[in-house]
Amino acid sequence: MIGEITFKANFLSGVGKGAFFVNIDWVKEGIRKKFGFLPFPGTLNLKVKKEDFEKLQKIIPKGYVLIPPASSFCVARFLKGKVGEVEGVFVFPEERVWLHRNVLEFIAPYKVKERMELKEGDQVECAVFFKFTPDAVIFDLDGALVDPSEAYEEILKIISQKFKLLPPSKEEIKNLIKGRKDPWSFIFSTLDKEKLEEAKNLDKMLLPQIYPKKTKLLPYAVELIKELKKKGIKLAICTNQLELSNEIHELLEEKGIKDFFDLIIVRKLGEYFDKKEAIKICCEKFGVDILFSVYVTDDKKEAELCKEIGIQCIIVENLEEIAQILWN
C-alpha cells in the first residue's frame, strides 16, 4: 500500500551542496531511471517541525536506495513527494553527512523556488509517499463492513406506523446512513417532545432484535478479512455505532467473522466515545505504530480525522478494490 505523511515546512536558502550532489552523473541517472525525470541541479531546503521530522525518520528505510559507485560518496534514500503541487522526490542522506537536523531536501525537474516564487521563511504544504504492508487494519462498521439499510428500514417503518407517519424511502435511509444524519430530526421532526421520547424508547427496544438479523455483510467482506488474517495482520473494529445490548457482537458471530477480529470497540449507551482515541487504543493494544496501520471507513469526513492522528485511511468504494489498494 502507498502511505502518505503530510506536513508543513518553511523554505530555507541553501549553501549549494545540494546542487553539487544532484549534478553528479550517476545521481542524475539514478533519479531518471527510478522516478522518470532529470533533476534540476539543486535542491529545495525545507525546515520542518521536530515531531514531523521524527515521523519521517520512521519511513526513510522504506525509500529507494541509491548506492554510490565509490565509498567517498554517501548512500542516500529517496521517497516520492510533493511540495505544494510540485511533484518530485525527497532525498535522505546518511546520518553522518546530514548537515542540519529537521531540514529536508527536495528534488524536482525544475527550480521549485522560482516556480513557486518562494521567499525565505515561506510556509509550504508537503507530502511524502511510502510503500508499506500494514501491521493492523481497523474497520468502521456500517458502510465499511456491513450494510444495515434493511435493518434500519424495518425499524423506521415500525416506528413510523406507530405514530402514523409516512415511512422513509430506501433512498432517504441510504442518505441517512451515508450522511450520519440524526433520524429524529431528519425523519421524526414533527413529533412533540413526549412522542419523540416514546419513539426513541421503541427504537432502543427494536434495534437489538432487528439489527443482527437484517444487517448484511458487504460483498467480499469475508474474503478480505480471511486474506488479511492469513497474512498475519492485526484486525479490529472501531465504530461509534451504538450497541444497546450485544447486537453488534451477535451480528459478527452470526456472520461467522467475529473470531477473526483481535479487538472490537463500539459505543455503549451513556458512554463518551472519541473515535480518535479509540483508534489509538487499538494500535497501542496491538503494539504497532499507528503510522503503519490503516483505518477503513465509508465516511469521507473521517479522512481528516485519520490525518490528525497519523493513521493511513482508505475510503470504501468496494471491499475488493481495498484488497488491491492494500497489496499494491
Rank of each mutant, 00 (worst) to 15 (best):
L217M: 11
F163V: 13
I155P: 00
F186N: 05
K200Y: 12
F188Y: 13
K164A: 15
S169H: 11
S160H: 10
L176D: 01
A199S: 12
I173S: 02
D182P: 04
I173M: 03
T190S: 14
A221S: 14
I177H: 01
D203F: 09
L191Y: 13
I159Q: 05
K178F: 06
E154S: 09
D203G: 00
E197I: 07
S160G: 11
I187K: 06
I210E: 01
N175T: 07
E154N: 11
I159K: 03
P219V: 06
L165K: 13
I159H: 03
L156A: 05
D203N: 10
D203L: 02
L176I: 07
S185G: 14
I173K: 02
F163P: 03
P219G: 02
P212F: 09
L218S: 00
I158C: 00
L218H: 01
A199W: 02
L166N: 11
P167D: 03
R180G: 07
S169R: 11
M205A: 12
K174Y: 09
I210V: 13
S189F: 15
L218K: 08
P168T: 08
E172R: 07
T215R: 08
S160F: 04
T215D: 03
E171F: 06
G179K: 12
M205I: 14
T215G: 08
D182N: 15
I177K: 02
W184N: 07
K216L: 08
L156G: 04
D182R: 08
F186M: 02
E171T: 09
K193V: 13
L217F: 06
P219S: 00
L207D: 04
S169P: 02
L196V: 10
I158L: 04
Y211R: 04
L165M: 15
K213E: 03
K213N: 01
N201S: 15
K204A: 13
K170G: 10
A199K: 05
L202K: 14
K157P: 00
A221Y: 05
V222N: 00
L191K: 14
I177F: 03
I173F: 11
I210Y: 06
K170Y: 14
K181M: 11
E198H: 06
L191V: 13
L165E: 09
T215I: 09
P219M: 04
K174W: 04
K200T: 08
I187E: 03
N201T: 13
T190E: 10
P208T: 15
D182C: 06
L217A: 10
G179I: 10
G179N: 12
W184F: 12
E171Y: 10
Y220I: 03
K200V: 12
I187N: 05
K200M: 14
K162Q: 13
E194L: 12
E154V: 09
E223L: 00
I158G: 00
K216F: 07
N201R: 15
K164Y: 13
I177Q: 01
W184S: 06
I177T: 05
Q161V: 01
Y220L: 00
Y211G: 02
V222T: 08
M205D: 05
K162N: 09
E194T: 14
I158K: 11
K200F: 14
P212H: 07
P168M: 04
K164V: 14
L207Q: 14
T190D: 00
L191M: 12
P183S: 05
